[in-house]
């Protein structure tokens, strides 16, 4: 269960399955840091005061849904569901995200977040349920043309599984759109899962962002599709 081989991941199981094939060439590459087959990119886990956010993240490892509400711009509370395909369990958890520090500059912004959740892990195909939790950090820096992000997370699914994962992203916007325009980003995500056989995964992806909608689609070097959707209102 712990040494999961990602090559067998079946992209057809992915929510909102996208019609992508291995022929998709890796248009962008940027060498990046370290990173896991298990991290889900929770971009901007805290919204503006009174803001609701829905995030659906799908990659070679898991399908997740996260709904959160931000009473202030400092923290958000919400519900998280995770379906770990090869690890064989589901997680239902209450999640708390905190913005520890934001650095606002004239042309850029950087953030440091902490994230944690506590809930129930259920092993699929059995009646094995156990308390579970996760905790991690996330940090990012961006201006209107460049984006960097690093995040990690340790997950303990009771007596079912436990694992650590981390990921990093680099992004570049080919043009600067104004408020309300379609914003396009070319990104590369590197995931690192120390315990996995294929511990590094590289995923070139594109991000499209307009109004309250954000969509990301990509394909990893292991042939696994990534598809994320974020709605913020």
């Amino acid at each position: 269960m712990r040494n999961v081989t990602r090559r067998n991941a079946n992209w057809r199981k992915i929510f909102f399955g996208v019609m992508m094939t291995r022929e998709i060439i890796f248009v962008f590459f940027v060498a990046v840091l370290v990173i896991a087959n298990a991290t889900v990119a929770d971009a901007r886990p805290v919204s503006y005061p009174g803001g609701w956010t829905m995030m659906f993240m799908n990659n070679g490892d898991a399908n997740t849904a996260h709904l959160h509400y931000s009473p202030t711009a400092k923290y958000s509370v919400g519900y998280k569901f995770e379906h770990w395909r090869d690890r064989g369990f589901n997680l239902n958890a209450a999640q708390l995200n905190g913005l520890v520090k934001r650095w606002n500059e004239k042309d850029s912004q950087a953030n440091f977040y902490v994230k944690g959740g506590i809930g129930i892990a259920s092993e699929r195909g059995t009646s094995n349920d156990d308390m579970a939790g996760f905790a991690g950090i996330s940090t990012d820096w961006e201006n209107r043309r460049l984006f960097f992000q690093y995040e990690n997370r340790y997950t303990e699914a009771g007596n079912i599984d436990d694992f650590f994962g981390q990921s990093a992203r680099v992004g570049w916007a080919p043009y600067e759109g104004d408020y309300g325009d379609l914003h396009t980003w070319l990104m590369v995500e590197v995931d690192h899962s120390p315990e996995s056989e294929d511990s590094f995964t590289v995923t070139p992806l594109m991000r499209f962002f307009k109004g309250v909608h954000l969509v990301e689609a990509g394909m990893s070097n292991q042939g696994e599709a990534l598809f994320n959707y974020v709605l913020r209102y």
């Binding site: 901007r44 919204s47 503006y48 005061p49 009174g50 803001g51 711009a73 934001r102 650095w103 606002n104 500059e105 042309d107 850029s108 912004q109 961006e142 201006n143 209107r144 600067e176 759109g177 104004d178 408020y179 309300g180 914003h183 962002f209 307009k210 109004g211 309250v212 913020r232």
Partner: peptide, 28 residues
Amino acid sequence: GLVCDFCARALEKVFGKQEAVNDIDVDL
């Protein structure tokens, strides 16, 4: 720190709740 549409939307939402505000324009 005004670098993206989410930032712009945040300000639009917050000021939009103010009784005194008629409209807000964001120039990224």
